[in-house]
Simulated scan of single mutants.
Amino acid sequence: MDAVDYSQPMLDVLEKLDLYNKKICAALGSGRKIPGIEDESYDVVTISGGFFQAHLPIDSLEEVVRVLKPGGYFFNAMTKYYLESVDSLHGLEPLMRQMETDGKWLMRARLVQDHVIGREQGLFHVFQKL
């Protein structure tokens, strides 16, 4: 594989790596649906580093649930510090719990791990769609 220039826009990098059959760039949150993705079409959805200041809004979790097949898994990896320091993320875990109460999914794991990025703790969530 050729060396990748990571100063390029990330979709260009993704295209050059040729790892995926389908690449989509779409805004999430505020009830927006990802174009071209049918309901209940994915076995797994992952978000890594998406919940950060001015990145994904927490209501994008509704789109995660929409595209997951029943029994499918959602994996989230983030820096724990952002839950406390970014105002727009204060409601992330309460929303996750409310979605569980509403019968959309079941939390399978919540893990905090030290020194994931330097001295920062990593936070990992695993949910299974009902």
Rank of each mutant, 00 (worst) to 15 (best):
K129Y: 01
L68P: 02
E40Y: 10
S60Y: 03
G29C: 00
H55C: 05
G71K: 03
P35Q: 01
L123Q: 00
S48D: 12
L83C: 03
W105H: 06
M96E: 03
F51K: 01
L19V: 08
D39M: 03
G122R: 00
E63I: 04
L17I: 12
E93I: 10
D12R: 08
Q128G: 06
L123D: 05
M99P: 00
M10N: 12
K33P: 02
E15V: 12
H125D: 11
G103N: 08
Q98F: 11
A109C: 10
H90E: 12
R97S: 10
Y42T: 12
K23M: 13
L83S: 03
I47T: 07
I24M: 03
K16Y: 06
D114I: 06
G36E: 02
Q8E: 07
V13C: 10
A27K: 04
R119I: 15
K69V: 08
C25L: 15
V116Y: 01
F52T: 13
A26V: 06
P57C: 02
Y82N: 10
S60D: 04
I58A: 02
M78N: 00
A109G: 10
G91E: 01
T46V: 14
H125C: 09
V13S: 09
D114W: 09
P94Y: 06
E84M: 11
E62W: 12
A26L: 07
Y42P: 01
D2N: 13
K23L: 15
I47A: 02
V126L: 11
V86D: 04
G122M: 02
